[in-house]
Amino acid sequence: MGLYKLFSCNVEIQYKSCFLSKAMLFTLITTILNIVLPFIVAYRSKGFWLRTHNYYEQPVIRFTYEYLVLAETDDPSQPILCGEAAILDEEAHNGEENCAQLQVQEYDYNDDGKHDALYFKLNINVPSHRTISSILLLFGLEFQLKSTCPLHMQSLAVIDKAFNVAPSGFKMYGDVVLYQVAHLPCVPNVIDTKYNNSLLNYRNKIGDNVVDFILESYFHREVTTQVNPVYSRNQNGHTSSMDINIHLRVPEMVIRYRPSILQELKWAWPQYLSLVVVFYWIFNRIKKFVFNNRLLMAWEVIPWKKH
């Protein structure tokens, strides 16, 4: 009947020396190297500290019922302006009767409380003897992120289209996407409300041109929403009215943010630890070699030998 190895344990052989000795110096150096070298290797091989991180979330997007629609005709003195902006003068509205109808629907298909699609249908009466040459639609949106980086902001869906020939209709299918020029600060448990103010509701008039002012102010934001057109189609024909259909989906969006210190450490720790293990093994072998062969002066304490 054969014997099987069931368990084994090591016998500890201690090497002792006084504080001011070569062996102590050697041990100190190897210990320091064991701590520092893995850090240097991990750092120099790039990507040790997590500079950026991202996650996916479908935001809550709602139409704020603020809008500005500018349809330019071939005569620049007769534009059609629909909608409202607080900074618009009363007298500035001309041709408002041509904004026949704006219809808005918000759809939540999977019943999770977040709108999955927005639909805008706009009907414009074209003044006689005029043709629409371009349209600019600004829809106010409420944008909310709720999970990792809470954010509440009022953004815009800007849709711009110029027509080469007189249009009778325009259809667009697109996605509302988040566009960041900088990382979100992502402070835990603090809702970022830096941009939670409506541009269409801004009263202090700076520039002359309301539309330019809104677009410029929006352009200077660090976080904006854009309309990413997937398909669009214009229907030709000089008619007395124009239908504009905008279908916008709200997909999951990538949100870039600056990781917190804990997340940085959580990311760096495994990299460091995995290298420490390797270096520990190497230095242990070196130490074993040095002390076993008595290259440095130290007392050897063997448990079964009496001193």
Binding site: E72, P76, P79, L81, E91, D208, V211
Partner: peptide, 28 residues
């Protein structure tokens, strides 16, 4: 006159006291 929404002098705005302006727009 002031270019309220496009580059044409579509709108008009009052001259505000002590507010220097430089308005450019196109007209017929």
């Amino acid at each position: 006159p002031s270019p309220t929404i496009n580059n044409y002098c579509t709108g008009r705005k009052p001259i505000m006291f002590l507010k220097n302006e430089n308005i450019k727009c196109i007209v017929k």
